[in-house]
Amino acid sequence: MRSAKGWLLAVALLAGTAQADERDLWMFAQWAGDHQTRPFREMLVNARLYGVVPIHQLLRSASDWKLCSASPFAVPPAANWPAVRSTLALLKTLDTQGILREFEVVSAYREPNLNRCAGGAVGSAHTRAFAVDILLPGWADPNPLCRFWQQYGQAWNMGLGRYPTGRIHIDTAGYRTWGGDGSAGSSFCVKPK
């Protein structure tokens, strides 16, 4: 039985953060049994990027998959794999530099119809390139991520956004930033002058 102090700590850690995604490893294993993921996995292994993000998170589609009667997971088309490698290389660098150690990917590649149903932007990097929406633990400070974007974002062609839900969007499809209202002016980061 958990003590009252333990419950208070758990509540404090979750306060102000979005809940973890229900699409866990078990659900992924059931889905993967009926879907071809081997070529995608081999590409990740060959690029030395397998495991940067757990595969069950890396293949999560939009969080609104149920509402949109879509698949909970999706393998990006092979034509998108260079963008997958680019974004994963960025995430690996962020981890290596200690900027982004703990996170959960809640949305990655989205088929265009699912993106539209889920309210994604027209031409979203989730559909045309490769993007991840992540959740940080409640104690994580997003400012080091912002500083990295300010210093190295242009070289990485890095998109960095933050939504009102607390989710953070990362891609390598264009140097830009935005905040809760979708504009650069509401971003938690500002472009260096």
Score class of each variant (00 low, 15 high):
38 R>Y: 04
148 F>G: 11
101 R>C: 05
165 T>K: 00
188 F>E: 00
128 R>C: 05
126 H>F: 01
139 W>L: 11
39 P>S: 15
143 N>G: 04
145 L>T: 04
83 A>H: 09
113 N>E: 13
83 A>C: 04
49 L>Y: 03
114 L>T: 13
2 R>N: 13
141 D>R: 11
117 C>F: 08
102 E>Y: 01
114 L>K: 05
28 F>D: 06
94 L>G: 04
48 R>I: 04
106 V>G: 02
145 L>P: 02
57 Q>D: 10
82 P>Y: 09
114 L>H: 08
152 Y>Q: 15
13 L>T: 12
49 L>A: 05
5 K>R: 11
174 G>I: 02
167 R>Q: 13
66 K>P: 02
106 V>L: 00
48 R>C: 03
136 L>I: 10
182 G>M: 01
59 L>E: 10
1 M>E: 15
120 G>C: 07
101 R>P: 06
145 L>C: 02
159 G>P: 07
14 L>P: 05
12 A>F: 12
40 F>H: 08
68 C>Y: 02
79 A>I: 11
133 D>Y: 11
94 L>W: 03
170 I>H: 10
80 N>I: 00
41 R>M: 13
193 K>L: 04
92 K>S: 10
79 A>N: 08
188 F>M: 00
111 E>Q: 08
41 R>H: 12
62 A>Y: 03
192 P>N: 00
138 G>D: 14
176 R>Q: 10
22 E>A: 14
53 V>K: 12
108 A>V: 09
52 V>P: 14
163 Y>V: 08
149 W>A: 11
35 H>I: 06
22 E>K: 09
171 D>A: 03
121 A>N: 03
168 I>F: 01
32 A>G: 00
97 Q>D: 10
112 P>R: 11
86 S>W: 00
174 G>L: 04
138 G>A: 13
166 G>H: 08
105 V>K: 10
112 P>A: 06
49 L>T: 06
183 S>E: 11
163 Y>L: 07
103 F>W: 01
35 H>L: 05
102 E>A: 05
166 G>A: 06
60 R>W: 02
187 S>C: 12
104 E>Y: 05
175 Y>A: 11
188 F>P: 00
129 A>R: 15
140 A>L: 06
53 V>E: 14
190 V>S: 12
117 C>L: 07
56 H>F: 13
188 F>G: 02
7 W>S: 15
166 G>E: 07
150 Q>R: 13
77 P>I: 14
184 A>C: 07
